[in-house]
């Protein structure tokens, strides 16, 4: 009996490994956590999309839970995502946009066409602020708490059901 058990060990090991690797197959490589979670929002000084003379910095995030959405006119998914962002803004959540690697004209056109849920848009034409945030594509969305700490990160498209299932619970959690 003992010998049987011993002999079955390799099989058990193999099955364990197979299950482990099989689970890896269905993992989303973009589902990984942002390296910036629990970090303070990186310091920056940039102008806003509306007003080249208005400078904003990280103090923008003090005092209120804010959703920060990284978008660009060149990004088709960002257009699809706008209804969800407008919905979030309607629910009273404060949204700040980062207009990422874009031009002022195109960025403004985008907002005229698809609506503007953002209290303010940070104009980041070189993508420097995006780089500091570890952004590797748009759209990306960060939740920043009232102390300016990054608490949640969503990579890619926010689906209509994501608003209810993940974004709203996270906002409530940190409010």
């Amino acid at each position: 009996m003992k010998r049987r058990l011993l002999l079955s060990l390799p099989l058990v090991g193999f099955i364990g490994l197979a299950i482990f690797l099989y689970m890896g197959l269905s993992m989303d490589p973009f589902g990984r956590d942002s390296a910036r979670l629990s970090d303070a929002f990186p310091s920056f000084e940039l102008s806003t999309l509306d007003d080249p003379d208005r400078r904003v910095d990280e103090s923008l995030f003090e005092g209120e839970v804010t959703l920060v959405n990284v978008w660009g006119e060149w990004c088709p998914t960002c257009k699809q995502e706008m209804p969800q962002l407008l919905d979030l803004a309607d629910r009273g959540i404060r949204l700040v946009g980062i207009n990422y690697k874009d031009t002022r004209d195109k960025g403004r056109e985008f907002l005229d066409e698809f609506g503007n849920p953002f209290e303010v848009n940070i104009f980041d034409p070189e993508g420097d602020l995006g780089f500091e945030l570890g952004v590797y594509g748009a759209p990306e969305t960060f939740l920043v708490d009232a102390d300016g700490i990054i608490r949640y990160h969503h990579t890619g498209y926010i689906k209509p059901e994501d608003v209810r299932d993940t974004i709203l619970p996270e906002v409530e959690k940190w409010q």
Partner: peptide, 8 residues
């Protein structure tokens, strides 16, 4: 790079 993009 790890600070910004993670161990990935």
């Amino acid at each position: 790079m790890v600070d910004r993009f993670g161990d990935y």
